[in-house]
Nucleic acid binder design. Structure first.
Lengths: 188, 188
DNA sequence: CGCGGCATTTGACCTGCATCAAATAATCAG
DNA sequence: CTGATTATTTGATGCAGGTCAAATGCCGCG
C-alpha cells in the first residue's frame, strides 16, 4: 500500500503546473462540522473529497445496523465509487466524525478536465487502482485474520485512531460487535 | 454491475479502429490446458488475460489452505491487480479450471499504448473502476448475507457454475468449508 | 454536588460455521 | 466389471463471535 501511495504522490509532484492549476480551479475548500454528512443513502455522489484535516467515515445501513466500510484520514479521498463512477444513487453515507476541512471536486468538471489533460486520466487510474488494491487487502484480512488480529493491525496502521474514532465505529469497521471489541481490548 | 459492463462494452464499440488494431498488435491468443497456471505466487503479473473461452480461478494460499478470490468466465479479465499495477511479486495464483482460450496482453506494451492513446487509458480506468466496485460488492455480500444466501446468489448470477466449477472451489469462493456447502445444498 | 444520558464493560446464553472422522457415491484405469 | 481414487455427504463436537440484559463508568449541566 505504501508503494502505491508513493507512486501517486510522485506522479502528482511531476504534474505540469497547468494541470495543477486546472484542478485548483474545479475544486473548492469546504469546512464540515462534526456529524455532518457529505453524502447520504440514495443520493448521487457528485463530488470527491480530498481530506485536508479531520476524520470521516463511510458506511451503509443494513437491517437497521450501520456497517462502516472506510475510516478516512488526512490525505485520503472520500468518494462512494459505485455511485460516483456511474452517477447513480448509491447506498453509502459519508459523514464527518470530527470537525474537518475537505477539498471538494465536482465529478462533471473533473470528467471534462480528464478529457483535456490525459495526465488527469492517468492520475484517476492510479487512484482507482489504489482503491481496488486496498479493497483486496481488506477482503484478505477478513478471510485470514480473526477479530483480535484485525484490531491489532488497525492500531498498528493508525496508532491515533482511539483518540479520534469512537469504539462503536471501530467495532463496526472491524466487522464485530461493540461487546466483542470490548472483550478484545480487555484481554490485550 | 450490469450497467458498468454495458458502459465498458459501449466504450469499446466506439473505439477508433486504429486503437483497436493497436490492441490487437500487442495481444496474442493462448490456449491453456485444464489445471495450467497463468500466474503463480511470488511471480510478477506481467500480463492481463481476456478470457475468450473457459473458466479460470484466482486464489491465494494461507496456512496451507487455498482461498479462491475470483471465478472468471468468458469475457472476464484475469489479472492480479496488486502485482500487476506495481509490477512486483504478488500472492495470487491464476489457474485454468477448464480448457481455456485467452487473449494475453503484455503489461509494458499496454502501458506504452496507453500513453499514446488516451482512449486506452480511459478504458483501463473504466475496467479498474468496475473491478473496484465488484470488490465492494463482494465485501458487502460477506457482511450482509449468510452462507446460504451467498450460495443462492452465486447460482443466480452464474446458473451454469455447477457444471464447470468443482464444489471445492465454489465453497472456497464463498468463504465456507466444503462440508458446510454440502449441508446447504442438502437443505435447499 | 447530584442527576440524566451516553459510552463501555461484564455476564449468560446462543448460533453459524469449522473441524475431524467416517460413510457413501462417483469416476476412471486396467 | 472391479478395485482404487477422488468427490461428496453425514455425524459429532467445538468455538468465535453474536445477542440480550444488566452493571458500571464518564461526562456535562443545572
Amino acid at each position: 500500500m505504501k508503494e502505491h501511495l508513493h507512486k501517486i504522490s510522485l506522479f502528482v509532484k511531476n504534474l505540469d503546473n497547468e494541470v495543477l492549476s486546472v484542478v485548483q480551479t474545479i475544486s473548492t475548500t469546504k469546512h464540515v462540522k462534526k456529524g455532518e454528512y457529505l453524502l447520504r443513502h440514495d443520493e448521487v455522489c457528485r463530488h470527491s473529497y480530498w481530506i485536508e484535516q479531520g476524520v470521516l467515515r463511510k458506511f451503509y445501513v443494513h437491517e437497521g445496523k450501520e456497517h462502516t466500510t472506510e475510516l478516512l484520514f488526512e490525505n485520503d479521498i472520500a468518494v462512494s465509487l459505485a455511485s460516483y463512477s456511474l452517477q447513480k444513487p448509491g447506498r453509502e453515507y459519508i459523514q464527518a466524525i470530527t470537525e474537518a476541512v475537505v477539498s471538494q471536486t465536482d465529478f462533471a468538471s473533473f470528467q471534462t478536465a480528464k478529457k483535456v489533460y490525459p495526465q488527469l486520466m492517468e492520475l484517476d487510474l492510479l487512484m482507482t487502482e489504489y482503491h481496488a488494491v486496498w479493497l483486496e487487502k481488506r477482503l484478505y484480512e477478513f478471510h485470514t485474520l480473526d477479530a483480535t488480529q484485525r484490531y491489532k493491525l488497525l492500531l498498528q496502521e493508525h496508532p491515533h485512531i482511539l483518540h479520534t474514532v469512537p469504539l462503536t465505529y471501530i467495532a463496526s469497521y472491524l466487522g464485530i460487535s461493540l461487546e466483542t471489541l470490548s472483550r478484545i481490548r480487555a484481554k490485550i
